[in-house]
Design a protein around this nucleic acid. Structure first.
Length: 490
RNA sequence: CGGGGUGUGGCGCAGUCCGGUUAGCGCGCUACGUUCGGGACGUAGAGGCCGGGAGUUCGAAUCUCCCCACCCCGACCA
């Protein structure tokens, strides 16, 4: 039929694209690499935003909004930051269009050239630190804990819906602190928020760790990250939290007076997660029948499909459905009654399955007679017929069970696909098969680069809970103090 | 930016090599009727200057040249 989804083992990327399309999450737009996020996909993002926003605010952060455009000169202030982003910046050079001479099209008005070009933000450190230089004078102004929800643009060569788009939505936190320790604490606090969010809300088990220097954010002293393993054995960075040291404070001259009346540079962090999380969500749980959503992030948690022949049957079922809806809503469960009379039940079942709605209820004449309802769960595709008594409690429990089940399933998958390698041959073999590979590394960027060149694998992270363990680098044989996590990544 | 590919109703494609009258097919869409416990069926319809421009020709979706866009594989990346 029209809604066929390519199986995962046939073509994983095609499977991913099919799900994004057929679940109605997003589509490509006229601008290469820029996507239209459709209502159903955006609803998932709104759920993520709401949960994260609360977590940020509960830990003392406030939201603000900084401009989309950054003067080019601001960008050149922090050297490694420029270097990191220069190759993927969109630049505004003119501010006016005019009708072409033949009157048929619109052209750039060369008379309207900007004196200084504007960069469309690829991230906001530059504009924010310029602003902070005016906001921060005293230790009384610290800590400054600000987050913004925004779009950013990175002119990527190759793009994929949600996973890598030229424009994407994200949140970016930018904080300033009195001491190094406090800033590091902040970076770690956020890392834990990201990990909690991934695991509890998304059902996405993550590893927490530090990036190697090669993979570190441009301008950071240390990058913390959470990494998840996708079903095809590739790693996906789910969030990063950077300890920026005093790099931006020095570049933008952000100093404060201490209690002792001494002038000091502030210490900084920045951190973000993006719409890429939706990509992670899709890849992590979905199957060959379509999207599978964790109940806590599903825009619709329960859908009710009526089964009927005649309109008087529909009336009776509709009444029953509304009663159930009221009971579920009291439990804060989002529920949709699919009363479209233009589609048959089979069609609706398939559609909601593709869209990943966690629980589907079906009510027909038979159920009315017996006081029952058919309950189907998306994660296992199991169906059972339940008595109507306490149905809201049964559904509430089922949603919790589904949330837990998909997390456990993902966790088991990750465990089964996490290996140790002690020889170069073993390492190459493991990387080829996919998954996380724990191996010793001599700690040098050169070795990491060579490993990447030969295997396409990178160090995803140095685990925060790394065990001290003497060993020899998988590539050079030089001594190492502990294992790091390698994988091929998105 | 290198290598490969594709542009034909809303979507997916055939037709192009070898030019020939009203450009087909599947899905979707509209109307009516029958259906409705896992993606229904019948009948009747609507919808296309064949990516753009220039050329060859009596005649171009089809041949030539020049553009443009998108997709896939690499290098870059949340």
């Amino acid at each position: 039929m029209a809604k066929e989804i390519t199986p995962r083992d046939e073509n994983y990327s095609q499977w991913y694209n099919d799900i994004v399309n057929k679940a109605g999450l997003a589509e490509n737009s006229a601008v290469r690499g820029s996507m239209v996020i459709k209502p159903y996909g955006y609803a998932i993002w709104e759920k993520m935003q709401a949960a994260l926003d609360k977590m940020f605010k509960d830990t003392g952060h406030e939201n603000a909004y900084f401009p989309l455009f950054i003067p080019k000169s601001f960008f050149s202030k922090e050297a490694s930051h420029v270097e990191g982003f220069a190759k993927e910046c969109a630049v505004v050079t003119h501010y006016r269009l005019k009708t072409s001479e033949d009157g048929k099209s619109v052209v750039v008005d060369e008379d309207a050239k900007l004196e200084e070009e504007l960069i469309v933000r690829p991230t906001s450190e530059a504009i924010i630190w310029d602003t902070y230089s005016r906001w921060i004078q005293s230790y009384r102004d610290l800590p400054l804990l600000i987050n913004q929800w925004a779009n950013v643009v990175r002119w990527e060569m190759r793009t994929r819906l949600f996973l890598r788009t030229a424009e994407f939505l994200w949140q970016e936190g930018h904080t300033a602190h009195e001491t190094r320790e406090e800033a590091i604490e902040e970076a770690e606090l956020i890392l834990n928020i990201y990990a909690d969010f991934a695991e509890k809300w998304m059902g996405l088990p993550v590893l927490k760790g530090l990036k190697s220097p090669n993979e570190r954010f441009a301008g950071a002293d240390e990058t913390y990250c959470v990494e998840a393993l996708m079903q095809d054995g590739k790693a996906l960075q789910a969030g990063t939290s950077h300890f920026l040291g005093q790099n931006f404070a020095k570049a933008f001259d952000v100093k404060y007076l201490t209690k002792e009346n001494k002038l000091e540079y502030v210490w900084a962090t920045s951190w973000g997660v993006s719409t890429r999380l939706i990509g992670a969500l899709i890849m992590e749980h979905s199957d060959d029948n379509g999207l599978v959503l964790p109940p806590m992030l599903a825009p619709i948690q329960v859908v009710i499909v009526p089964i009927y022949r005649k309109s008087d049957q529909f009336e009776a079922i509709s009444q029953k459905a509304h009663e159930i809806m009221d009971r579920l809503k009291q439990k804060n469960i989002s529920v949709k009654f699919d009363d479209r009379d233009t589609y048959k039940p089979g069609y609706k079942f398939a559609e909601w399955e593709v869209k990943g709605v966690p629980v589907r209820l079906a009510i027909g004449p038979r159920d009315l007679e017996n006081g029952t309802i058919e309950v189907a769960r998306r994660d296992t595709l199991e169906k059972e017929t339940l008595k109507m008594e306490d149905i809201e409690i049964k559904i509430e429990n089922l949603l919790k069970k589904i949330q837990d089940n998909i997390y456990q399933k993902a966790l088991a998958f990750r465990d089964e696909n996490t290996f140790s390698a002690d020889t170069w041959d073993e390492f190459k073999d493991r990387i080829e098969k996919g998954g996380f590979v724990l191996a010793h590394w001599d700690g040098t960027p050169e070795t990491e680069q060579k490993i990447k060149d030969e295997t396409k694998a990178t160090i995803r992270l140095i685990p925060l809970d790394q065990k001290r363990e003497k060993g020899n680098c998988i590539y050079t044989g030089n001594p190492s103090e502990g294992r790091v996590v390698f994988a091929r990544a998105y």
